[in-house]
Design a protein around this nucleic acid. Sequence first.
DNA 1: ATATATGGTAAGTTTGCGCTTACGGTAAGT
DNA 2: ACTTACCGTAAGCGCAAACTTACCATATAT
Lengths: 110, 110
Amino acid sequence: MKTEKMKNTNSHAIAFNALGDPTRRAIFEKLRASPLAVVDIAKGLPVSRPAVSQHLRVLKEAKLISIHQHGARNVYQIDQEGVLAMRNYLDKFWDEALMAFKTFAERTTK
Amino acid sequence: MKTEKMKNTNSHAIAFNALGDPTRRAIFEKLRASPLAVVDIAKGLPVSRPAVSQHLRVLKEAKLISIHQHGARNVYQIDQEGVLAMRNYLDKFWDEALMAFKTFAERTTK
DNA sequence: ATATATGGTAAGTTTGCGCTTACGGTAAGT
DNA sequence: ACTTACCGTAAGCGCAAACTTACCATATAT
């Protein structure tokens, strides 16, 4: 069968995908508590520091976190703008899902 | 290095993971439009029907959709309760992230 | 200058996951 | 009864992605 794979197109899909990985969620939740340098993020996590660096890149491309240099340390933090955009998108996403549900629930006499 | 892999623990994490896959998002959005039998869900998607069945299982375990039999047809639809729970969880999730951001933004003189 | 701390990236390995094919099982139509 | 439609699951395959090790670059400390 010809399988032209499904792709992650829009930015929200990318964000979904970014948080789909358990390690990245762990990283994101750490940053939710406070901004941190890469070393400190890696501390406690069950993966190597380079692995963390790679995850940080994904989260950054998803606009969920941002970086700013502090001497030799690269400090990462939550990206307010990106998170806000994601939240607004999801609000609509769920609302539409629930609205559709109601539409069909009314048709059912149950 | 000893790598005790990270796991998807709580139900919200599972939901995140469920929607992290592009095909599953496509399926979910189809069901958002209306309840559908498996055959109809598979129709138009670039993957086989069994693949769709497997995705449906994941979405179901994430409490994002529910099934009810209709003769020989298995009709899937949005799981209102699960979606509501997910929405509430995410609202808090984002809010906490943004609150933390503000806390640390105020410390910065910029 | 040398050493130490920090971290990004390249290259290669492994493993998990999404997929297909094959099969079996039930429901409805003829 | 048998044929057709519908669908879940098992087994196996292939690939993308998460991981490791190794290396290099820059910043700070001594």
